[in-house]
Design a protein around this nucleic acid. Structure first.
Ligand SMILES: [Mn+2]
Ligand SMILES: [Mn+2]
Ligand SMILES: [Zn+2]
Ligand SMILES: [Zn+2]
Lengths: 144, 144
DNA sequence: ATTAATAATGAAAACGACTATCAAAACCAA
DNA sequence: TTGGTTTTGATAGTCGTTTTCATTATTAAT
């Protein structure tokens, strides 16, 4: 799984004529070891803790490469920070976001996806992507 | 319609113990005269053109009051600017956004709204709001 | 009307996430 | 090795927005 993704990035880099660097390897390793919607800042701190030399800008730059090669997806939940999540091949999901504790639940809904296609078609749009987020209070925040 | 909305704001302000100011009246007038998803910057320039004295910060502050009182809704389409649109009582819509020319088409879909409620209920969420944006190429941008 | 308390304003500075710059370092093909 | 090219990281800059704070306006009480 992880090796597979590393290969994915290496192939992408090779095809693009990118050089192989220690920094990109480190950032990929650490990104692959994280779960769910990590902010650039958090990833940067994780990287720094084991590799103090790595710079801010490199983390930003490298995450964009991950998106370009299909390893990561940019997610924005309006706390003003860009987050990245892992792309799982053939999978797509949207998010329930708790406005109190910021916890996130992922969900999939075929019907909604289908309806979106219909809506786009009806308006002559060629869909490139979409963003569906449901905001509210998660079950544990409701109780308190 | 416009008088109704002005009353709405006045009532809100009174209930909140806000003072009535020339600036807030001006900004409300001009906001009510605009259409669809205006950015703070654009509204600020509109305000300035007839009332050069009004400050940047006041426009930002006042728009937040409009949202709080239910007159306006914040919309973010990821060009990095916050936009505001008019709230029409009892109406809700989502957006198709052209990634090429930035044009926006509004749509409503009962089924999707219903499915969102189901999804939230299934996960124990109490919905506060949602955001559904479909990104793609509009019909005229497709042709070119 | 005058006053006094307090809220609102606007110019300017600060903020925060991100991007650009650029000299130094790393990479890699020859 | 060498040398051309890419990448890096410190730092400065950008941009939308928020904060600060001295000044001004509003309002309720006199
Ligand atoms: Mn997710
Ligand atoms: Mn709209
Ligand atoms: Zn919660
Ligand atoms: Zn278009």
């Amino acid at each position: 799984m992880i090796l597979e993704k590393k290969k994915m990035f290496n192939d992408f880099a090779a095809a693009k004529g990118l050089r192989s660097t220690r920094q990109r390897d480190i950032i990929l390793d650490i990104f692959l070891s994280t779960h769910q919607h990590i902010s650039v800042e958090d990833l940067y701190f994780k990287v720094k803790s084991s590799n103090p030399g790595v710079g801010h800008a490199t983390v930003y730059r490298t995450l964009k490469l991950f998106v370009e090669c299909g390893l990561a997806r940019e997610v924005l939940f309006y706390d003003g920070q860009t987050r990245y999540e892992h792309v799982v091949a053939g999978e797509h999901h949207d998010h329930l976001v708790c406005t109190n504790c910021n916890s996130i639940v992922e969900f999939e809904n075929e019907t909604i996806e289908m309806l979106q296609n219909e809506i786009a078609a009806r308006h002559g749009f060629q869909i490139k992507g979409h963003k569906l987020e449901i905001y509210g209070l998660c079950s544990s925040c409701r109780r308190q």
